[in-house]
Write a protein that binds this DNA or RNA. Structure first.
Lengths: 216, 216
DNA sequence: GACTCACTAGAGTATATACTCTAATAATAG
DNA sequence: CTATTATTAGAGTATATACTCTAGTGAGTC
């Protein structure tokens, strides 16, 4: 593997493990047993590394949330979207942790992330529309759909922070992907009141699969 | 005012303005035109300052969210709770920004914050119960109420981060309390499907007061 | 075999950061 | 007034951090 790619991979790994704030460029170089000079040959600075990782993350999520327009949406699709988005959050989990600082230090990232958010919100809205078309949920006025999509986004992107801050005992690093995916339970909670009788039971059963094992 | 209190006040102000990560103890001392030595006479370290500020925040929110058991809940109460919580979030807005890092650096804070979260979740659940008792919303099974309370908490505590990362153009510092309180619109969105016919219109009108002026 | 060029090592640097130490001054108690 | 205690200044320190600079190395090309 190319050194450049190794740097990106190691950075992501260390960022996820210890948090971006606690990982220096020297740490990354040491972890790879390369020199700092070598690292700085491949990247102008730390922000550049983070920006590149963001581009990967963005590409992944954009790929998952590419909603096909030509066919109607099934419950399997919905499950796939939810699972995929939480997989993405997991793989790049350092990112949302220090988001505000990262955006403050890199305007290019700020702009791209804002667009990314809006694209995600658009996809969520579209999923709601197609769920209504498919008869899974009752159709709702556009205003409500927009506000609901935003709430879904808030729950999805901040579920991990909640787990890390409210749940974990002494350190926040023993979080598992399984626990993270209990966020799907929370997201589906938002949709309960809008389910059609035809699909109610199926969706409730789906939701049940993600119920947290230990109640808070 | 005592130097100790001035340090706490200046720290809070600087943290809110620039983010905890960008504010050093030397900055705080310089801002107050006192020596670093003086600052360290009053506080053992930076974590201690942050912990003290958290205790204030905690006290404030606990005070606001002290739900009276002996009388039923009105819409005015609900408005008060929502307004107060967002006021608190505003006054201590640095806190949720770097939350994970702060908790990782201070186990005492981690424990206290976890308890604080659970108390808040309890209060939200209680508010839901009392709203049902008052006939504002339909009563719901306890499981659903718990999951809903958690979603409310997620929306409340992360609304600001959303505004700062997705909304603001070039820097995230031009956020106003008014914009922050549009979070109330999002919170009330969660409750719409559960409103009783008797209160539906009133709550919808209340929600309307917080509608964002410019749609995203 | 000289030359190029992508790549790498590793020492080094300017700056920042959290925090310490000593000495001095103000406030207070007896 | 004196002794003690609380408070403050300000220089200083150890360490960390992002990043630079110079001197290569090694694989391929003509």
């Amino acid at each position: 593997m190319k050194t450049r790619d190794k740097i990106l991979l190691a950075s992501l790994e260390l960022f996820n493990e210890r948090g971006e704030r606690n990982v220096t460029t020297n740490h990354i170089a040491a972890h790879l047993a390369i020199s700092p000079g070598n690292l700085y040959y491949h990247f102008r600075n730390k922000s550049d590394i983070i920006y590149e990782i963001f581009l990967e993350y963005e590409k992944l999520v954009d790929f998952y949330l590419d909603i096909p327009e030509d066919r109607s949406l099934t419950l399997e699709d919905l499950t796939f979207y939810l699972e995929s988005v939480f997989d993405g959050l997991w793989s790049y989990r350092f990112f949302h942790r220090d988001l505000e600082y990262l955006l403050d230090s890199d305007n290019r990232l700020r702009r791209d992330y804002r667009d990314f958010t809006n694209r995600c919100l658009g996809s969520i809205r579209l999923i709601f529309e197609k769920m209504a078309e498919a008869g899974i949920i009752e159709p709702q006025p556009v205003d409500l759909r927009t506000a609901m999509s935003l709430n879904v986004w808030l729950v999805i992107t901040n579920w991990m922070a909640f787990l890390k801050t409210a749940h974990a005992a002494e350190d926040s690093n023993n979080l598992t992907l399984t626990e993270l995916k209990q966020g799907i339970y929370q997201v589906l909670t938002l949709e309960i009141p809008y389910l059609t009788p035809a699909y109610r039971e199926q969706v409730m059963a789906l939701r049940e699969q993600y119920r947290p094992s230990l109640p808070a």
